[in-house]
């Protein structure tokens, strides 16, 4: 079986999830080609164990983002078989379009994969899992932090394909981020606050801890809806972002079902809440029944001792 992986990039470099895509493809025992949109990360991709070939797809369309243009260019460069991307915002968009161009199915947010081809992905916001069997070509996007990353030691051939697509989305104005903080969708550790923080100004305590451990700061829907200062980009949950970090620290968050839908698959969950009956404790690995005012200063001190 031939597998083509669409590399994910971030800030001009290969995104770590790309190694996980290669790791997952390797378990299928397939020969793997990695496509690098705009050529970003091609040199690093060639050193990943299990990669058979790297194709830098370079074209004018990659200077801005238009899923239609990207998929046109990548579709032309990719061979047939199984195509794998990351279940990120761009990955889902591009993979949907390539699948539609080829008239084959796309299955998004895959969490398990085995030869056959057998595919598992969550449905109903993780309240159930669906096992699918696919015969023939398809496109898959894989959930980040779910598959083991492939290591170093590869020495794949690299080639460049000049291929662009028709750009129809025009950027009128770029608006800079309010803060330089890591996005929750990208973070390996997240510390989130809810309405239990009492006042948006109190998120400064979460920011301070996030800076200590390189975490992103998230928020519940209740916090985002209540306080204008807490932007929607921070919201974790059903109408916010779905996250899957190694560690999720929920502070003053009761654990409404809408919130759990966005973070329940976090590897480890710590909950700090003064209400021992809060639903968040039901899914927490480590629950601390305490006010945040008492718990956070000690947390900051203890984390400080680690470094």
């Amino acid at each position: 079986m031939d597998i083509t992986i669409i590399a994910e990039s971030r800030s001009g470099e290969l995104h770590p999830v790309t190694r996980q895509l290669v790791g997952a493809a390797t378990t299928l025992g397939a020969s793997t080609t990695v496509l690098c949109p705009g050529g970003v990360g091609a040199d690093e991709a060639a050193t990943i164990l299990g990669v058979g070939k790297v194709l830098s797809v370079t074209g004018d369309c990659f200077s801005s983002y238009d899923g239609g243009a990207w998929s046109e260019a990548l579709d032309a460069a990719a061979g047939s078989g199984v195509l794998i991307g990351a279940a990120t915002s761009k990955g889902r968009d591009v993979c949907s379009r390539i699948a539609a161009r080829r008239g084959i199915p796309v299955i998004q947010d895959v969490t398990a994969l085995s030869p056959g081809l057998n595919v598992t992905h969550p449905i109903y916001s993780g309240k159930a899992m669906q096992d699918l069997s696919v015969s023939g070509d398809c496109v898959l996007t894989l959930r980040a932090n779910t598959f083991p990353p492939a290591g170093d030691g590869g020495s794949a051939d690299t080639a460049t394909v000049q291929q662009s697509g028709d750009v129809r989305i025009a950027v009128q104005e770029a608006i800079a981020k309010a803060s330089e903080r890591i996005d929750v969708a990208d973070a390996d550790i997240i510390i989130s606050g809810g309405r239990g923080m009492g006042d948006p100004a109190n998120f400064s305590h979460l920011n301070a801890i996030a800076d200590q451990i390189g975490a992103a700061v998230g928020a519940s829907r209740a916090a985002v809806d209540t306080w204008e200062d807490i932007p929607h980009s921070m919201q974790v949950g059903q109408t916010g972002k779905t996250v899957n970090p190694s560690l999720y620290i929920a502070v003053g968050i009761s654990g409404a079902i809408q919130h759990l839908a966005g973070m329940r698959t976090s590897k480890y969950i710590v909950a700090i809440n003064k209400d021992p009956e809060a639903p968040i404790f039901k899914i927490a690995d480590y629950g601390i029944v305490s006010t945040w005012e008492e718990a956070l200063p000690i947390l900051a001190e203890e984390l400080g001792k680690l470094s």
Binding site: I104, P105, I107, N118, P122, I123, G126, K127, A128, M129, Q130, D131, L132, S133, V134, S135, G136, D137, C138, I269, P276, F281, I283, A284, D285, Y286, G287, I288, V289, S290, T291, E294, A295, I298, L299, E302
Partner: peptide
């Protein structure tokens, strides 16, 4: 060319540990 094999409830996490009070943070 896709067939649904089965639906399943998600794997249940083992129950976590709950600690009383901020003294448990360390």
């Amino acid at each position: 060319n896709v067939s649904v094999v089965r639906h399943a409830s998600p794997a249940q996490k083992p129950p976590g540990k709950t600690f009383e009070g901020a003294d448990s943070v360390p």
